[in-house]
Design a protein around this nucleic acid. Structure first.
Length: 567
RNA sequence: UGGGGAAUAGUGUAACGGUAGCACAAGUGACUCUGGAUCACUUUGUCGGGGUUCGAAUCCCUGUUCCCCAGCCA
């Protein structure tokens, strides 16, 4: 029996938060955080987390969400990533306001906490080597054994820890460990390392430090310092929660946030780990982190996806604990849904086929009125030039049309969108190859604008551009990055690259687009009628050479028919 | 018997002892100057086995499967 005020239909995390609010657990406050490590670009999986954390803050009165860079490992982190991450979060539509933090800002405090732990007899300096520590840790089924350094006196530990900070030791010589339980069935509790020596320049603190806190130590305390109420992370950290809680309890801090774990997002036909994505970037399998085929936020942005579409997607997939694989078709659905409402329609011919209108006067040209967006008439109309010689799509003509093919064929009449009805009268082929070179058609002057006064119907409407007036453009067609829905499903982790899709990028260099596109701005999005959504590439498009990225195709029932017939 | 999680249409996610719902995908039809969009309709599901109950996806027992953990990564 559901109580009338029970929260239902929301995810389990929001349910917990609503309950906490009701019981006044955190004094009515809601503070979340998004804590990326600046060691790579953000991807759609991060978008899920961003929407969750910032979304929760937005939904609750007085709620806040901090952006905190978890920069505790100077070996892997770079400022370039920090800037990229900030840009991507903003682009997605979220704002941390004044709440921008860095774990490195807490290094001094964290050091003091570590000293306090030593004083409490709850941490010690261990001088075992990495290999020895591993040996002493035991295995999943066998308990570990105590380090011989576990019994060092507090004074000795303090002295050693100070000298670690002072730079007296080489990397790896010592490590500070929490003194918990080497027999714990949870390996994270077997005296985890909390500080290690790294004589590496940090991108923010420079050479100030040569010891750096580990994630487990830094994260919970950073949350606590910032007054976070709900620390939301992914399920692989579930095993770390006892340690998270142990540190905050042992140190007796005022603020003890609740860690809650949810399942990370997996998307079909792509990979979702910064390590793997970095590998693709470094091996030049893609042009960079913002390659439009990448599942990164910057890649999707360059591809033409909108923040709204991504947010809608994140909302729709929900939040739960079970491992799952979301169909990339769902993401594409939200992209289409959003773009359908807002994208300007234009005509573009990707694979041009020359068409001569035999009975159209030489040298004549006229401007025909076209609707910019039938979904939104406030977007108005534009004039598109028409003339005797046109280009249509090669796919829109078949010399021997199968039964369900409605487009142009010898003797058949179709409509040129917003223009005239035309009838194909002859086909000119290359004598050597047999390839169709051009079509000759006649037009019906009575059908100007696209409708016939006698009311006769045509089976289809095709798009076109005027040969003389259209401009050349390069168009990049993208397909899934991988050929396999789950490229990481193999036994061998490294095998994912076997499934890289060799056809994920097809570059078309002789496309013809409407003249109105001559001054199209970087990133602006269009629907090329009957083809899909495209945007002006921000990287390579110039005034001299227009470059478009295909964001996503239109739903294509003809393609479906063809597939069903096995052609 | 290492420990920690999770199992609901093809996919994802609701239902918190009371009609298994929603979205995508798939299919059918209507409409259409985009084979687009839109609209209507349809197919498909509670991991297995026991039990409690008038009634179980939900509670109990039991089995199975999948994921995570042996970094001085996060």
């Amino acid at each position: 029996m559901a109580s009338p005020d029970s929260v239902s239909g929301v995810d389990f995390i929001r349910e917990i938060i609503a309950e906490d609010l009701k019981t006044n657990k955190h004094g009515g406050k809601v503070a979340t955080r998004f804590p990326p490590e600046p060691n790579g670009y953000l991807h759609i999986g991060h978008a899920k987390s961003i929407c969750l954390n910032f979304g929760i803050a937005l939904e609750n009165k007085g709620g806040v969400c901090h952006l905190r860079f978890d920069d505790t490992n100077p070996c892997k982190e770079e400022v370039e990533y920090i800037e990229a991450i900030k840009r991507d979060v903003l682009w997605l539509g979220f704002d941390w306001g004044k709440h921008l933090y860095y774990t490195s800002d807490y290094f001094e405090k964290l050091y003091e906490y570590a000293v306090q732990l030593i004083h409490q007899g709850k941490a010690y300096v261990c001088s075992l080597s990495t290999d020895e520590i591993r040996e002493y840790r035991g295995t999943l089924t066998q308990s570990g054994k105590d380090s011989p350094y576990r019994t060092r006196s507090i004074e000795e530990n303090i002295n050693l820890f100070k000298r670690m900070r002072g730079g007296e030791f080489e990397d790896g010589a010592h490590v500070l460990r929490a003194k918990i339980d080497m027999a714990s069935p949870n390996l994270n509790m077997r005296d985890p390392a909390i500080y290690r020596i790294r004589r590496t320049k940090h991108h923010r603190t420079g050479d100030t430090w040569c010891i750096y806190p580990m994630y487990d130590f830094a994260h919970c305390l950073s949350d606590s310092i910032e007054g976070i109420t709900h620390s939301i992370c992914t399920t692989e950290f579930e095993n770390h929660r006892p340690l998270y809680d142990w540190i905050l309890e042992t140190l007796d801090v005022d603020c003890h946030p609740q860690q809650i774990e949810f399942a990370r997002l997996n998307l079909s036909y792509t990979v979702m780990s910064k390590r793997k994505l970095l590998e693709l970037v470094e091996e030049k399998q893609v042009s960079g982190w913002d390659d439009p085929r990448m599942p990164t936020i910057s890649g999707m942005k360059r591809r033409g996806y909108t923040p709204e579409a991504i947010r809608n997607f994140c909302e729709r997939i929900g939040v739960a604990k079970r491992e799952s694989m979301v169909d990339i078709a769902l993401l594409e659905h939200f992209v289409r849904e959003d773009l359908n409402k807002r994208a300007l329609r234009v005509m573009a011919v990707l694979h041009p086929l020359k068409v001569v209108i035999d009975n159209y006067p030489d040298g004549k040209e006229e401007d025909l009125e076209c609707i910019n967006n039938p979904e939104d008439t406030t977007m108005g109309t534009r004039k598109v030039p028409f003339s005797k010689i046109l280009y249509i799509e090669q796919d829109d003509f078949l010399e021997e049309p199968p039964k369900k093919f409605f487009r142009l064929a010898p003797g058949r009449e179709v409509r040129l969108r917003y223009a005239y009805f035309i009838t194909c009268v002859s086909v000119i082929k290359d004598e050597a190859t047999g390839k169709i070179k051009e079509l000759h058609c006649t037009y019906d002057p009575e059908t100007r604008g696209g409708s016939a006064p006698d009311g006769r119907k045509v089976q289809s409407t095709i798009h076109w551009v005027s040969a003389e007036h259209s401009i050349e453009a390069e168009v990049r067609l993208y397909d899934h990055l991988f050929t396999k829905a789950d490229p990481c499903g193999e036994k061998d982790e490294a095998d994912f690259k076997k499934f890289l899709n060799p056809d994920s990028l097809e570059t078309l260099t002789s496309c013809r687009v409407e003249p109105c596109l001559a001054n199209a701005k970087h990133g602006s999005r269009y629907q090329f009628e009957r083809l899909g959504y495209f945007c002006v590439d921000t990287g390579d498009s110039t005034g001299k050479k227009l470059v478009f990225n295909r964001t996503v195709t239109l739903r294509d029932t003809w393609a479906k028919v063809q597939k069903a017939e096995g052609t």
